[in-house]
Design a protein around this nucleic acid. Structure first.
Lengths: 336, 336
DNA sequence: TTGTACGCGTTATCAT
DNA sequence: ATGATAACGCGTACAA
């Protein structure tokens, strides 16, 4: 054994110093109201004096609660690059720490129901789990059955009663199109994300709703399904320009495709935004550092994380929660 | 089966099923060699049959080891956007999971020695810690004194014997300058990062070494100290172009400043790379999605994480480790 | 090599 | 409201 730790104070010492029983110490430290005021003070004083900190393993063993919340990321390539995870995890972690809970990071493929992560979650080693970018609902259905508190980032496919947080994707898309219309654009195309994805779907819905409500003429072939990649942005922008010579705006479901589209437009000898305006989605690092500056729909990613954390805390506490939709904000730069 | 709380199997049940004592079960499950082969088999069979998984809290309480490694991120704004931490954390997590260890994420400001994170780490609630992007060495000095296994990402300022992982910043910078020279560039400037930062320092060293070894004429004022920001890239590029009309290349200490420099160059009516070549550092998302494509020095970020994890595992195990420097690779695109 | 027995620090139940 | 005291599940001296 690596002998090292000078042994920490325990309830026994606090109890002795405060002149109460260990049970009372426990009550005070766990916020039990039915304790005499003087004794509460005495215990707190002793805690202070001894520099006592609760031993989490012992508490976990006795109570069955670990003080750990899992943040689960389905391990695919996007994780390596997308700053989204950093921001949302930051928001989660911040809130959890305020509540003396810790963030356990689980990054692994989730395809199978018997994957290491799936097993781990079923083992009761965390008090709850927050899923980021869930590809399939099967795992969370299983976990929900086992009464593990769950929060999902992004609208789930199923209408099952999962609590989730999400951005107002439709609203953000609507705002983008409205801005384009206000700028006098008439022929506005959209390059969507992978439409298996609910966010992509919602952004398309927002675009379609805006087109209709704002009285844009219905033109066929203005919507192209992309896959979030730069290449998709390039390809679809080229196609759209060919088929619609009067095209004067493209709304893209993320910034990467928007930058691809801009590259294609410039390559074709047209200018942005003079000839064709472009709006992206996410207001990512990319948008902020692009030249010309990319107009984009900002999500409050840290806010999503904080909401998710608050929800999981409520669920762990046994409270009811309702899903949260956070508003988006259009950040106007030079491309639209 | 309508039992609602299917309580998990414990040593008692395994012991009974395998016909051995609980102590023997413990020995088998912890890899003690001095156990009869037949009994090992019997225990393993029972474990399999019962679907037993160790209760980590109980093990932690009894052994003093938690099975948790903290990944500590000094909470500043960069965390929100920089994809670096996602990649490195991914590498860490992957390796730890293979060894049945979990990744505990600690994101908070570390300025003070008595910050919540600092206290947490001193409380023995993790078996070790990996520090990402450490600004000051004071905290790790304190923790090292308390024998907490530590690994730092990035070269520490102090020459204290901290184990660390880092990219070969100097080597990467050297390769960038060599590439520029090979392309016929004569007047190569550098915009550094904040030189308090060891990575920025090392990249500058690599640049200076290359200038000397490759026989570039010594010109004053070709090095500008930036602060990693886009604005720094813009400003310094403007200054450099003014002061050095024959400037034909700029090497930047990160991609953000490189993109800022490119924007400034284009704004000044010059072309990239025809008039002035630009190389960044990190080969980030930004470089990969920029237009024109940014030539940049790639770090093996996931590799850094994996190395860090392997090192901390060795340290926890009581082994000696030596710091690791991973090579960088120049990714050539259009700007140089 | 194996088993006994106790300890780890906290929580929760049960009397009082 | 308070205090004994029994779990919680595992690790490990010590004995055999």
């Amino acid at each position: 054994m690596a002998a090292k730790q000078k042994s920490r104070p325990t309830y026994a010492e606090i109890a002795k110093l405060a002149g109460v029983s260990e049970a009372t110490v426990s009550r005070v430290l766990n916020g039990d109201t039915k304790v005499d005021t003087d004794r509460i003070a005495a215990v707190n004083l002793a805690v202070e004096k001894l520099g006592y900190k609760k031993h989490r393993a012992a508490a976990a063993l006795a109570s069955g609660r670990t003080g750990l919340i899992a943040v689960v990321i389905d391990d695919d390539l996007s994780v390596f690059q997308d700053p989204f995870w950093g921001a949302i995890t930051n928001g989660i972690s911040r809130v959890l720490m305020e509540h003396e809970m810790q963030t356990l990071l689980l990054v692994a493929p989730l395809e199978k129901l018997d994957s290491p992560v799936a097993q781990y979650l079923q083992r009761g080693e965390v008090d709850g789990a927050i899923f980021l970018q869930l590809h399939k609902d099967s795992l969370i259905k299983l976990l929900a059955k086992q009464n593990l508190p769950l929060v999902v980032n992004g609208t789930p496919h199923t209408s099952n009663p999962f609590s989730y947080v999400d951005s107002d994707n439709a609203g953000g898309a609507f705002a983008a199109v409205r801005h384009l219309v206000e700028k006098g654009r008439k022929t506005i195309a959209m390059i969507t994300g992978d439409l298996d994805n609910t966010a992509a779907e919602q952004r398309l819905d927002g675009y379609l709703a805006a087109c209709q409500e704002l009285g844009l003429p219905k033109v066929k072939g203005l919507v192209a399904e992309g896959d979030w990649s730069r290449e998709a942005g390039i390809q679809h922008a080229q196609n759209l320009m060919q088929k619609h010579p009067d095209l004067d705006a493209i709304f893209c479901s993320n910034d990467v495709m928007a930058l691809g589209a801009i590259a294609a437009i410039l390559e074709a000898g047209k200018s942005v935004p003079e000839d064709i305006a472009v709006i992206g989605f996410d207001d990512s690092y990319l948008a902020q550092n692009s030249h010309p500056g990319l107009t984009s729909v900002r999500q409050d990613i840290v806010g999503l994380g904080m909401e998710a954390a608050n929800m999981i805390l409520a669920l762990v506490h046994g409270d009811e929660v309702h899903s949260e939709i956070l508003p988006c904000e259009l950040v106007i730069r030079e491309t639209a």
